[in-house]
Nucleic acid binder design. Structure first.
Lengths: 151, 151
DNA sequence: AGTATTTTGGCATACTATGCCAACGTGAGG
DNA sequence: CCTCACGTTGGCATAGTATGCCAAAATACT
């Protein structure tokens, strides 16, 4: 992982569909070694994939919520059940294990407040073992960048 | 925005570098109309771009923190200064305007706890006008999906 | 300095995107 | 029921792009 790799990563975070030729030009390599580096980063798991960045509102998904959750117990069964079920729920786009007051922070994307309430009551609570839920809604985006900080 | 567009969006969220031919096959179209739909979604701003999904740890960025911030005042100057400065900071990859107790939630990515402390003290606090900061660190990822829920 | 190993760049081939045009389907108005 | 207008589709020719292979260059190790 040298400086060229880092340049490549940042360029691909900015534009995941840049052509290999343009990418090679940006990092001052010829196309062959550039492509080989990209493939190596993919195989090594540094690049986990590529994704379109989509406007949730334009897709009719008006509500983005960050949900902090504490479990009632932390035995293996409760934890595994929670993580498995959350992994299956399409509405949950992210789930982080957290330090501090809460065990998990979820990012939940749904169409409406009604859909949010239905999700919490009919799907999330039904998992069982959840001690507390604390929701904050995002109603504006100041910044959303796929690019990591440089050194 | 019909059903085919929704299929296209989901396919591109799963794999942003899928070839147009494969995408067309997935959504049961021929390449030409498929590509035209993709370009229209891009022009309409539904697809905001494409990005490589990169493993932060593998890049030496061990710390991901969610930072909840309240401003001291909410006058135009304080708000604009905060949002402008946060937009410029590479360590802040996301900044959402929130409902409830806190004004903003930031996602901060840095190399180490030391770097985090330095960021908070030397850069974030220096913006001025910040009333309170509450940090939670993410130390594990259960789920991280770029795909929105389907109907 | 010399050798082993890795990385690079050029090239030929196969694949992919893209603009153009004709054909198809759909819906509204007569 | 017809027909016209509009939007969408699919095929095709062209231009652009990726990718595997090989020799050359650079780098690291003794």
């Amino acid at each position: 992982m040298d400086d060229k790799d880092r340049q490549i990563i940042r360029a691909l975070q900015r534009d995941g569909r840049i052509s290999n030729q343009d990418l090679a030009a940006q990092v001052s390599l010829s196309p062959s070694p550039c492509l080989r580096r990209v493939r190596n980063l993919e195989k090594a798991g540094v690049i986990r994939g590529y994704a379109a960045r989509v406007d949730a509102r334009a897709c009719g998904l008006a509500i983005t919520a960050f949900v902090r959750i504490r479990l009632e117990r932390h035995d293996e069964t409760t934890v595994q059940t929670f993580e498995r079920e959350v992994g299956r729920m399409q509405e949950v786009t992210e789930c982080h294990v957290m330090t501090g007051q809460t065990d998990y922070q979820l990012r939940v994307v749904v169409a409406s407040l009604d859909a949010y309430e239905a999700f919490i009551r009919a799907r999330l609570q039904r998992i069982g073992g959840i001690g507390s839920i604390d929701t904050s809604f995002a109603y504006g985006i100041v910044k959303d960048s796929p690019v990591f900080p440089a050194e």
